[in-house]
C-alpha cells in the first residue's frame, strides 16, 4: 500500500511539473489538500477582512466620484473573497467551517489589514501599495497548480486592475494639491511602507513553506524575490509622485541592478501576526459581529425556501 502511495505521489508531482492542473476530483496527497485549504482560505479571509479598513471611509469619501469608486472597490473585495471561498469549497470544506476557523482565530489573514486607515490618503496608499503588493502575488497565482484557485485568480486579477490605479490616482490628486494634502500623502506613505514590505512574508531563510510551495506552484518566486521586485517597481512611482522616500536607506545598487533598502522590523511583523497589532481585535470582532447578527437572517431564508419547496410538492 505504501508503495502505491509513493507511486501516486510521484505521478502527481510529474503531472504538476508538466504544467497540468490539478482538479478537485483528481487524486491528491492529503498534504496538498490541507495546504491548499489553508492558503486559499487565508487568501479569502484577507479579502473580506480587507473590506473593513477601506470600508470605514466610504461614508466619508470627499467627492461623489471617489465615493462610488471606493464602494465598488470594497465590494469587489467581497466578491474576490467569495470566489476564493468557492475555490476552497471544492476541496471538501464548507464556507461555514472556514468562517468558523477565521472567527476562532485558528485561520490567519494578511496582517496588513490589522493596521488602521486613519486618513483619506490611506485610501490612496492602500490601493497603490497594498493592492500593488497583493497583485504581484496574484498574477503569479494565475499559473498555480490547483485549477479552481488559478481560475479564481484570473478573474480576480482582471477585476483588480482598476484597484491599484484607483489608489495611485488618489495619491496623485493629493500630491498635485495643497501643501496640507501633500503632507497627508507623505504621512500615509511613511506609515504604510513598512507594513507593505512585510506583506511578502518572512525572509526566505525563515520561511518554512517555501520549498514545498514552489514544488506545487503555489509560489513561483520566493518572498524576498517578490519583495525586491515590489521595491524596484515602487520607488520610481514614489519619485513620480514627488514624495520623499519613506526609508533613507533606499538606494540604487548598480551592481545588483536593484534598489537596496533598510532593515524590516521583524519583531513588529511577528507581533502583529501573533495577534497584537493595532487593529487585530477590532477586525476580528467586526467580522464575528456581522456573522452572528446575520444568523437569524440566514436561517429565515432557509426556512422560507423549505416551506416554498413543500408547498410546490403538495401541488
Amino acid at each position: 500500500m505504501e508503495i502505491d502511495i509513493n507511486r501516486l505521489d510521484l505521478e502527481f508531482q510529474a503531472k504538476i511539473d508538466s504544467g497540468k492542473t490539478i482538479e478537485p476530483k483528481d487524486w491528491m496527497p492529503e498534504k496538498y489538500r490541507k495546504t491548499h485549504i489553508r492558503q486559499i482560505s487565508q487568501h479569502a479571509h484577507s479579502e473580506i477582512v480587507g473590506m473593513l479598513p477601506e470600508g470605514n471611509w466610504i461614508t466619508r469619501a470627499p467627492s461623489m466620484r471617489r465615493k462610488v469608486t471606493l464602494l465598488a472597490k470594497v465590494q469587489d473585495e467581497g466578491g474576490h473573497g467569495l470566489y476564493l471561498y468557492s475555490a476552497c469549497e471544492t476541496l471538501g470544506i464548507s464556507r461555514d467551517e472556514l468562517f468558523e476557523q477565521l472567527h476562532s482565530g485558528k485561520a490567519k489573514y494578511s496582517s496588513i489589514f490589522n493596521y488602521p486607515a486613519v486618513t483619506w490618503a490611506d485610501m490612496g496608499a492602500v490601493g497603490w501599495l497594498v493592492d500593488g503588493a497583493a497583485i504581484m502575488n496574484q498574477v503569479m497565482l494565475t499559473r498555480t497548480s490547483f485549477g479552481p484557485y488559478a481560475r479564481a485568480m484570473v478573474r480576480i486579477c482582471k477585476e483588480e486592475s482598476f484597484h491599484q490605479r484607483q489608489g495611485f490616482e488618489i495619491m496623485l490628486s493629493l500630491c498635485n494639491g495643497t501643501a496640507v494634502q501633500k503632507h497627508m500623502a507623505q504621512e500615509s506613505l511613511n506609515r504604510w511602507w513598512w507594513p507593505s514590505l512585510m506583506m511578502f512574508g518572512p525572509r526566505d531563510e525563515e520561511s518554512t513553506h517555501t520549498e514545498q510551495a514552489i514544488k506545487w506552484k503555489i509560489k513561483l518566486k520566493t518572498n524576498d524575490e517578490l519583495r525586491q521586485q515590489f521595491v524596484d517597481q515602487t520607488v520610481p512611482q514614489i519619485e513620480l509622485l514627488g514624495l520623499e522616500l519613506p526609508d533613507p536607506a533606499i538606494k540604487w545598487n548598480e551592481e545588483r541592478g536593484h534598489y537596496d533598502f533598510g532593515a524590516i522590523d521583524w519583531d513588529e511583523f511577528w507581533r502583529v501576526v501573533g495577534g497584537n497589532g493595532p487593529c487585530n481585535r477590532e477586525r476580528l470582532s467586526a467580522r464575528k459581529e456581522a456573522w452572528e447578527k446575520g444568523a437569524w437572517v440566514r436561517e429565515a431564508a432557509l426556512a422560507y425556501a423549505e416551506k416554498q419547496e413543500s408547498l410546490r410538492e403538495a401541488v
Binding site: I48, M51, V74, Q75, G78, A290, G294, V297, R298
Partner: peptide, 9 residues
C-alpha cells in the same frame, strides 16, 4: 458594506 449577513447579500 463589509457587514452584511453573508457575502452574497
Amino acid at each position: 458594506c463589509g457587514h452584511g449577513p453573508n457575502l452574497e447579500t
